[in-house]
Design a protein around this nucleic acid. Structure first.
Length: 490
RNA sequence: GCUCCAGUGGAGUAGCGGCCAAACUCACGGCCCUCUCACGGCCGAGCCCCCGGUUCGAAUCCGGGCUGGAGCACCA
């Protein structure tokens, strides 16, 4: 009991409780992505929050691909699996995965029922014409068609007998509703472009999000819907359908939009896709892309992303996510196991006189038991330009010794570590002038070339290590010519 | 134009009538530790959008305003 209380204490700053959880046998939630590309950082919020609630309430987490627009939101066939990979990376496993384009017949059946209930009518007004009538709170002539005609015309829609724009099925709501957004909205429309999924390519009559999503939420037993403020009116719209069917609407939580600092690229799947196609980005996992694939390649753990997104809560305000909070979460996860190495960027070469043959800094300052590295001084050393001492000045080569600059040479002074402790001499990292490992470090700000110490070659791909005084990186590749690392964070 | 929502330090969140001139995380500044500008420790600066009202008492309730966001698509 004391243990449980202690855990509750720790949850003080977690997400707020979901509303009316006691009224349901089980909390069921869904993420309903549009599979038009791999996920950006903002998309991670949904699985992060749903996954967290699932654990808290022992509930379930459904993934439903809302892919009912083969044209303007054309699904990307690779995206279905890419999104499931992203969810896996974040550390969650959906209880069920369903695809809306597999369920079109179900939507048709409910449309027919809705027509029988007097809740829908076929309408051949142009969008413009209807919009004007609607804004004046006036019904169009099609609203009073008899049910038989509506059925006939809807079946003709299903059979693909109309051109796009020629006929739609509208939900009969309240044409005088004070909120124009709720008046007689479109439930089905004609789309000529075949769906990219083979199984769904024959359909021409497609449901709109509010109809499809509303029906599916009920049919799949969703109890709590979490969605963005852009869908603020959806519940009110769908409520009309729920009323016709005698269904209870689930609980709804709305949250604001997320923006992420630190990127030049807008947090938008279509924008990222355009940049990739234009060659401005190398792919979805380019370190300059604000995508989950990019963070993963940089060695940031899904858990760190989740932590940072959970901390945003679920308020309806728009929020800015600082990458630094993802970095802080991740650093906590990787610091203890990341071995230390030296990397010198834009190195300047110096001859070295006196001193031992090699330096031996530890692999990790907090874990002497892991051993030490061997950094030889073959052919002298290289230093970063900012670390080069002025002529006559001293600098401490970390793990090696104190040296003084004399012209283009560094000369061992024989000083003890005391000169560092007293603050007289700065400690810098360094690599041998010959025999280092060529490294390309890929960062959100572009690629950086450098040379790592020889022992760096012993690291494994996927290791996250720290280049001292530079930052953490994930080892991506050890090639013949060079190694490639992805910068993780400071 | 109509409708809906929100406004607490640089970012985010908590507090939701007295315990609050306000807490926590990240960021920032300083100091300590340290053979890293990492990790760790200490300290610091900085916030209740405005105006009225209710109340003994308001960040918290009410009204108005201002600012910001969202919807009014045959997009999701």
């Amino acid at each position: 009991m004391a243990e449980i209380e202690a855990e509750d204490e720790g949850d003080d700053h977690d997400l707020p409780d979901l509303p009316n959880v006691d009224e349901y046998d089980e909390v069921r939630m869904r993420a309903a992505p549009n599979p038009n590309g791999p996920w950006h950082i903002g998309h991670a919020r949904m699985p992060a929050v749903i996954g967290t609630y699932k654990e808290r309430y022992d509930g379930s987490f459904i993934v439903r691909f809302d892919d009912t627009d083969p044209e303007t939101k054309r699904p990307d066939l690779d995206a279905y699996d890419a999104i499931l990979d992203d969810i896996d990376y974040l550390g969650f496993e959906p209880d069920d995965v369903i695809v809306a384009s597999d369920r079109v017949e179900t939507y048709y059946e409910h449309a027919r029922e809705l027509i029988d209930a007097g809740g829908a009518y076929t309408c051949s007004c142009s969008g413009e014409t209807f919009s004007e009538l609607k804004n004046d709170a006036e019904a169009c002539p099609h609203r009073e068609k008899d049910v038989e005609t509506v059925h006939e015309e809807f079946e003709a829609m299903v059979d693909g007998e109309y051109e796009p724009g020629e006929m739609v099925l509208r939900v009969r709501t309240d044409i005088e509703h004070k909120n124009p957004a709720l008046r007689d909205w479109v439930a089905f429309r004609m789309i000529d472009t075949p769906h990219p999924r083979e199984e769904a390519s024959a359909y021409r009559c497609w449901p709109m999000l509010d109809f499809q999503s509303g029906v599916d939420d009920h049919l799949t037993g969703v109890t709590h819907i979490i969605r963005g403020i852009d869908l603020q009116d959806s519940a009110k719209r769908q409520q009309f359908v729920y009323d016709y069917f005698g269904w209870e609407y689930p609980e709804v939580v709305h949250w604001g939009h997320v923006q992420v600092d630190a990127y030049d690229v807008k947090l938008s799947t279509s924008t990222i896709k355009e940049k990739i196609e234009a060659g401005e980005l190398d792919g979805w996992d380019d370190p300059r892309a604000p995508t989950l694939a990019s963070l993963r390649r940089r060695g940031i753990r899904g858990e760190a992303v989740v932590d940072a997104l959970i901390a945003l809560g679920t308020s309806t305000s728009n929020v800015d996510l600082s990458m630094s909070s993802i970095y802080a979460s991740n650093r906590e996860l990787v610091d203890d196991e990341a071995e230390r190495y030296f990397l010198v960027r834009d190195g300047e070469r110096f001859a070295l006189d006196g001193g031992p043959d090699a330096g031996h800094p530890p692999l990790h300052p907090d874990h002497e038991e892991r051993g030490e590295r061997t950094v030889p001084v073959d052919g002298g050393v290289r230093l970063e330009p900012d670390d080069v001492p002025a002529p006559g000045e001293r600098v401490w080569l970390k793990g090696y010794a104190c040296v003084r600059r004399e012209g283009d040479s560094l000369v061992a002074t024989g000083d003890g570590i005391g000169v560092v402790r007293e603050g007289d001499v700065d400690v810098v990292h360094w690599v041998p002038a010959e025999g280092g490992v060529e490294v390309t470090m890929r960062t959100p700000d572009g690629d950086v070339a450098g040379v790592a110490e020889p022992d760096f070659a012993a690291t494994d791909v996927d290791d996250v290590v720290q280049f001292e005084r530079i930052g953490f990186v994930r080892v991506d590749e050890h090639g013949d010519e060079e190694s490639v690392v992805y910068w993780t964070h400071p």
